[in-house]
Amino acid sequence: MTSIGTGYDLSNSVFSPDGRNFQVEYAVKAVENGATSVGIRCQDGVVFGVEKLITSPLLVPGKNRKIQTIDSHIGCVYSGLIPDGRHLVNRGRDEAASFKKIYHRPIPVDALADRLGQYVQAHTLYNSVRPFGITAIFGGVDDVKGPQLYMLEPNGSYWGYSGAATGKGRQSARAELEKLIAKHTKNIDINEDDTDNKTIQLKVRDAVKEIARIIYLAHEDNKEKEFEIEISWCSNEETQGKHKLVPKELLEEAVSFAKETLSHLEDSDDSDSDDDNNEGSATQDNEGDIVLE
């Protein structure tokens, strides 16, 4: 980073001469070292998964939830600075509640994405605030466009995805998502109307297992650290359009499936090692999140 020390990285709202906003780029660094989060858009809904590194043996297992609910039909997970994510979710809840008060119907996922995007973007404009140190994956099912999944970055840009991953293990996770989605996608003309999301043949129930597998795989480079896994889903078929944690039994099933496929991989000595093992420069706390200096 040759630009450090030039003074252009001290403030939001000031561009460097080559047109970059360094504060936003540093926020992205915070995300890159956060715990891995994954989301998949399926035929009948969306699934979220997150890796929870165990920072202390005194933490109560299975509690300390990371995935949150924005509205009853929208879930959210994020990597990076957890309190920033908490704040973003609170904002999302306010937006969802205000939409409902005005229009008497649940907020469509794309409308929420737009509002949150604007809010995050506004935090790149002012000297008195810092950008959000998170990349959030959120989505749900609404009756206008069905299942939708968005990923929102620290600079405020958001894109719709059929599979999204962020955090430390994002690269291997994204590679897996690409394979998974290619495998379950019907080969059709790209211009064909896909409002029913029919091209993806994957159901949420199967995606839960795949997410567990992907998170276990993405954790491989971080092997020495203990972790828990949290998975939630939102589907018309499984949860009547509500965002909920997956039932205990399904989570256990998914975890054992993940462990089994992973041990097969190790046996064949064929594990993917194309993911990032850089970013070791920033100091991390024991949660794997970056410590701001």
Partner: peptide
């Protein structure tokens, strides 16, 4: 009706086993 629906949504925010 609206108040009750808001109440329910708010209660479910941080309750993982809201069912």
């Amino acid at each position: 009706e609206q108040i009750l629906s808001d109440l329910e949504i708010e209660n479910n925010y941080d309750n993982s086993y809201a069912d």
